[in-house]
Amino acid sequence: MSRIQTVFSALKANNKKALIPYITAGDPHPKHTVNLMHTLASSGADMIELGIPFSDPMADGPVIQRASERALVHKVGLRKVLDMVQEFRQKDTKTPIILMGYANPIEAMGMEKFTQAAKAAGVDGVLTVDYPPEECKDFIAALQVSGMDSIFLLSPTSDAARVDLIVNQASGFLYYVSLKGVTGAANLDIEEVKARVAAIRTKTDLPIGVGFGVKDAATARKVAAIADAVVVGSRVVVAIEQSSEDNLLSNISQLMAELRTAIDA
């Protein structure tokens, strides 16, 4: 069983939902990333989504764009991101790591080289934002061969035929984008999310995560009542942005504790 599956089964057995925070690798500075990951894991995260910095993050709002820019100042590319995962794995062999990023850095490294290096570093799943399933059959196959999951987005505009197509390519879990917009936008409609998640459930046994618009503990709680996992990105990145070196880790663990409490309530 993969790490992602193990975590979801254990949560299910305890009637709990997964909390998946997102951070961009190298933000606010590469020296903090591994510590941040350990802090996330020890303060309530069940899995970690680790963003690969990219110069042109087309699907991200201003908060995560700025995180990419901060990381790129320190030239944090995909190789360095994988080094960080490897370092994290020396102390934590349980928390699943999902890389989230754009196709070009992966293609620049080369698909085969990437899948080998990611597996060796201890990556569990990959979400490539601008790879719809039609355009990445080889990549899905390569990930599968090396035992990593292909995480795909589903959106409020995905029709039934697309949901069918995507659930058949996906593994690990499905990531439902809770709004029409970029990461960090404000307009999550919980009733719509509920209906959409229910519709997706009729087509798959994979766990369903919801993200893109989870801005506070109250929303996290509502989403947890509907979905198997709550993904919190911009809110975490804002906390990183607003922290100083001294209170970075404590601020993040406090935010995680709040979210955890809300989700478990």
Binding site: S55, K75, G77, L78, N104, E107, A108
Partner: peptide
């Protein structure tokens, strides 16, 4: 320039070795 993916399509792209657009 190497082939890459930007703005919704695959084409020749000016980029650094990390795949960031220059």
């Amino acid at each position: 320039s190497p082939v890459g993916v930007l703005h919704g399509n695959r084409t020749y792209l000016m980029q650094d070795s990390d795949g960031n657009i220059i």
